[in-house]
Amino acid sequence: MGSEVAEVKVVHHQDLNKKILVALVVSSSLLGGILLLLSCFSIYRLKRLKKCKAENEENPDAAKAIISFGPILDKFPSLKTSGKKGSIASIEYQLLVAATNNFDEAKIIGEGGLGRVYKAHFNDHFHAAVKKIYAGGQEAQRQFENEVDSLSKIQHQNVVSLLGYCIHGESRFLIYEMMENGSLEFHLHVFRLKSHRSTLTWHLRMKSALDVARGLEYLHERCNPAVIHRDLKCSNILLDSNFNAKLSDFGLAITGGNSNKTSIKLSGTLGYVAPEYLLDGKLTDKSDVYAFGVVLLELLMGRRPVERAMPQLTDRSKLPNIVDPAIRNTMDLKHLYQVAAIAVLCVQPEPSYRPLITDVLHSFIPLVPVDLGGSLRV
Rank of each mutant, 00 (worst) to 15 (best):
L163R: 02
V148M: 00
F186Q: 01
G86F: 13
A309R: 00
H121C: 08
E139Q: 06
P60E: 12
L36S: 11
F144Y: 04
Y353T: 15
K318A: 15
K282Y: 00
S287I: 03
I91R: 00
E177Q: 15
M1H: 12
P77V: 08
Y277L: 04
R45Y: 13
L238T: 14
H189Y: 12
P305E: 08
I88F: 05
S235Y: 07
V273T: 10
K207G: 03
F364H: 07
S352W: 14
W202Q: 02
G281H: 00
Y93P: 05
Q138D: 11
L151I: 06
R116V: 02
R230H: 03
D15R: 15
E145L: 00
N56M: 14
L279A: 15
K246A: 10
D371Y: 12
Q348F: 07
I108A: 06
N59R: 12
L219P: 05
N244T: 14
K207R: 10
I34Q: 02
L266R: 04
D280M: 09
E147H: 04
H203N: 14
E180D: 13
L188D: 03
I109A: 09
A341H: 15
R354Q: 09
S28A: 14
L345T: 09
P320S: 09
K207P: 01
A62H: 10
I175P: 01
V22Y: 13
Q348R: 11
L31W: 13
G83F: 05
A23V: 11
P311K: 08
G70H: 05
V273Y: 02
S267E: 10
T269K: 02
V22T: 09
A343V: 09
S161V: 05
L95D: 05
T314F: 01
Y218A: 02
V190E: 08
L21G: 03
V160M: 01
L30A: 12
R172T: 05
M1V: 12
D249A: 05
Y176S: 07
F69K: 03
L30H: 04
T81M: 09
L239M: 03
S259V: 02
E105F: 06
K64T: 09
A54C: 07
H203E: 14
E221M: 10
K18F: 12
S352M: 15
M301D: 08
A226G: 09
E111G: 10
I357N: 01
L266Y: 05
L16A: 13
I91T: 02
R303A: 07
E111T: 00
K246H: 11
I167N: 05
I91G: 01
E170W: 08
Q94H: 15
P60R: 10
N224Y: 11
Y44F: 13
P366R: 13
